[in-house]
Design a protein around this nucleic acid. Structure first.
Lengths: 167, 167
DNA sequence: TCAGAACTTGACATAGTGTAAAGTTGCAAA
DNA sequence: TTTGCAACTTTACACTATGTCAAGTTCTGA
């Protein structure tokens, strides 16, 4: 909190006038990040896709583009959740959101009759959720040195190959 | 450190007689865990597999069985690495190991002429590495409630479907 | 002009990590 | 039996961080 205050050019106490605790500040930063970087807009191409391959490709492109912007905040949240109940709640909230969106995608695959028979709706949705986790992105891009394009294309291809049946 | 000491039935200072710092203790615990839970043995079925599907299935079974035992230690290490250089080094060491093993698997797929042409050796190895990350396991099993079997089977099936060509 | 919001300064409580030093205990080899 | 050492204890301290409290300042808009 001291460092944050210094960088903001205010006293350490002033930070506590706006955020009750370190955890609450972190949550606020996460919300702000989603807002500032236009999550809604970034997600639009997924909803606007008209076929299975297009949708999954849009999803992969979204992950490749959005994760680099939010991964530091998400990483902080993922450590914070272990010690702070409010942070855990915020994390669960975000997870529910990701899961709902993934479920929506899975449903559309079903509608298009492209969902592989090996996958239940739930398994497909959860798999899409997990492939969208920041942790996976961090491992591939930060630790293993994958480029933006390699990540995007591999995720897209693997989504298509695992989840889809031939049309 | 205080809690560790209490649970061990010694004074807090006694812990520092054995481990220089919290980070060093964590690293020692990680090493001990790999030893105690028989990493070498757990991995053997992968090496002993004689075909591509068998090997990838053994890998998935290993992940499903081993991750629950080590995930708490690994989670601790993954937060620790951000603040402690020795922890970061230990993490990198473990990552190199996982990567080498994954590369070995990818090479065998190549030898069997079963590696999908879309994958370079490196991409295949990295993908296997990332699918083996504790973070992915935690998200699917702990956060999304997947059973041991669902995790194992889905990982196995997806490995086969993405990485392999038809024989 | 003055009430209130935003901020400052300074002090304090609490908790955790790590260091230092002096004293205790138990055991094993000379 | 003694002695010397390793492991451990107790106590105290330095440092850092979070979070609370209270009194005082500054700026702004009604």
């Amino acid at each position: 909190m001291g460092t944050v205050a210094k960088r903001a050019g205010v006293s350490r106490q002033a930070v506590y006038l706006h955020f009750r605790s370190r955890a609450e500040l972190a949550i606020a930063v996460a919300r702000y990040t989603d807002e500032k970087y236009g999550l809604d807009e970034a997600v639009r191409p997924i909803a606007e896709a008209t076929d299975a391959e297009g949708m999954l490709t849009a999803y992969a492109a979204f992950l490749a583009g959005y994760n680099p912007r939010i991964h530091l905040v998400v990483r902080m949240a993922s450590t914070m959740r272990r010690s702070d109940p409010a942070s855990e709640a915020a994390w669960q909230d975000r997870l529910r959101n990701r899961r709902r969106n993934a479920r929506r995608m899975a449903k559309r695959l079903q509608t298009w009759q492209r969902l592989n028979g090996d996958f239940s709706l739930r398994t497909a949705a959860d798999w899409l959720t997990a492939l969208g986790s920041v942790a996976l992105w961090e491992e591939l891009v930060l630790d293993l040195g994958w480029s933006h394009a390699r990540f995007r294309d591999t995720i897209a291809r693997n989504c298509c190959r695992t989840l889809l049946t031939d049309p």
